[in-house]
Write a protein that binds this DNA or RNA. Sequence first.
DNA 1: ATTACATGTCAAGTTTAATTTACATAAAAT
DNA 2: ATTTTATGTAAATTAAACTTGACATGTAAT
Lengths: 72, 72
Amino acid sequence: MGKDAISNQLRNLRFHHNEMTQQQLADKAGVTRQTIVAIEKGNYSPSLELAFRIARVFGKSIEEVFQYEDKQ
Amino acid sequence: MGKDAISNQLRNLRFHHNEMTQQQLADKAGVTRQTIVAIEKGNYSPSLELAFRIARVFGKSIEEVFQYEDKQ
DNA sequence: ATTACATGTCAAGTTTAATTTACATAAAAT
DNA sequence: ATTTTATGTAAATTAAACTTGACATGTAAT
């Protein structure tokens, strides 16, 4: 799909949740650590399913974890 | 990723929005009609970016358009 | 000094999302 | 009757997400 339009709060949320590591988040979300790194750094955006699982780890809505800004 | 864990309200929302056709939704979301059909029928779930764009078409949150239920 | 941990990166591979083109059917319009 | 519109399907291809395995760096323990 499109480009780099999706940002996220992963780093903030990890640190606000007991200093959760990337590996711990990966385990809880059911993906590899590299996937978390790529998403956190904005290399690509997750599938909708993974977005749901990550949001659920933090007890947040998808919109609280991921923000979409389209090309103005 | 996983399987058929994501359901959606596309058909309902289309009809509640002036009988919007699949083609019209596809145009507004910037994808092809076949992509809308596949998502609406649950053949696969959209990318997070497309989920944002579809939700925006209806003025809804992602959670109001798509529901995630994991394997119990 | 060296072990351990958290993070970042890279290349190669698999899986899934999305496109393109095309064909089929049913319903509505003319 | 036949044209148009909306929907469903399918095969082949491209693009993107995700995995696996491996290596590098900085920082915190010990």
